[in-house]
């Protein structure tokens, strides 16, 4: 297939997906009971008239279809809406939190692959106790929800007192020099990133192991052994590229998984990303923010998948055959 058309098609399907996501999240938000203003009902000092006036001002009295149409038209012009709670445009809320989330997810993704691929290769190639430890460890980690991992890490950190408990930077971080700031951010990253890595590692590890084990059984690897290729080179130069295709596909998925897991971890560890904003907005029924966060995460996902598709296209000559 022609490369340009391939990319075009992937982008088009990504955009369609985003549209579907927006429609779905809008309908779901309409189904959720209560509205942003409900909390005011509990305040005896606010009269029902004020409440109705506010409702009209926020446009909450309009039918959902009309609200969706308004939103869609604005979104097409790059306007993600207006947050009721923050009295500010949603985009101003999202962008710097988005970069924090990307920092966390990016670090975690990097670490996960950095750890999982060599471990997976070794455990597929060596077998024995290493394989058994990896498979036991990954089963164990798989069965523990990431919340529990994060809480356990936090509890440990509180006890030890060596690491900061939450947030992303120390209070006086702006007084720091660049290297200190980096060090400070890294220290703050440890807990959330470790929780994410521990949650995602077993999946990637297992896939790597399976893909490698399968390739190591392939005739061409036996042939390469027969040609006297070094073991290490055999693994890295011969087997790994051949096993890469499923892993690259998994890469797209792993970004998705890490992104959704990170929203949760962020809430628990106080990382100032999209997660806390998202959760709070859901509880506050600040749906413009909720939908915007969903859209941004979906867009990140689509981009991640597109990247892995293109990478696959570039790496595996067999894909280009059709």
């Amino acid at each position: 297939m022609n490369t340009a058309r391939y990319i075009e098609r992937r982008i088009a399907s990504g955009l369609l997906l985003l549209l579907a996501v927006s429609l779905l999240s809008f309908s779901l938000s309409a189904l959720a009971p209560g509205s942003f203003l409900d909390e005011m009902k509990l305040n005896p000092q606010i009269s029902p008239e004020t409440f109705t006036a506010l409702r009209a001002q926020y446009g909450l009295d309009q039918p959902i279809a009309l609200r969706y149409a308004h939103w869609l038209r604005a979104a097409l012009h790059g306007d993600l809406g207006f947050s009721f709670a923050y009295n500010a445009p949603v985009s101003s809320l999202i962008w710097n939190r988005c970069s924090n989330t990307l920092l966390l997810t990016g670090t975690a993704t990097f670490l996960v692959w950095l750890l999982a691929v060599p471990l997976g290769i070794l455990s597929a190639a060596k077998g024995g106790w290493l394989d058994r430890i990896c498979s036991f460890g990954s089963s164990l980690l798989l069965s523990v929800p990431e919340i529990v991992i994060a809480l356990a890490l936090l509890a440990f950190v509180v006890r030890s007192g060596r690491l900061p408990i939450g947030g992303m930077a120390s209070l006086n971080a702006e007084d720091f020099s660049l290297t200190q700031r980096i060090r400070d951010t890294v220290l703050h990253l440890v807990v959330p990133a470790a929780a994410l890595v521990l949650a995602a590692l077993p999946i990637v590890l297992r896939h790597t192991r399976t893909a490698m084990a399968e390739v190591l059984q392939a005739p061409f690897i036996k042939a390469a052994t027969g040609h006297g290729i070094f073991r290490a080179r055999l693994l890295l130069r011969h087997a790994l590229p051949a096993a890469a295709s499923p892993l690259i596909s998994l890469f797209g998925f792993s970004i998705a998984g890490l992104l959704s897991a990170s929203l949760l971890i962020e809430v628990i560890t106080g990382w100032p990303g999209l997660g806390p904003l998202f959760l709070e907005s859901i509880f506050a029924r600040d749906f413009q923010v909720v939908i915007a966060v969903v859209m941004v995460s979906s867009a990140l996902l689509v981009v991640g998948n597109l990247m892995s598709d293109l990478l696959l296209y570039a790496v595996d000559p067999r894909i280009r055959l059709e």
Binding site: I165, G166, E266, T269
Partner: peptide
């Protein structure tokens, strides 16, 4: 005076406990 956002009550408590 600095207000830091903990995200939830448990985090708020932990950060106090850790003397942050």
């Amino acid at each position: 005076m600095a207000f830091i956002f903990a995200g939830n009550e448990d985090a708020q408590v932990m950060r106090f406990e850790a003397r942050e």
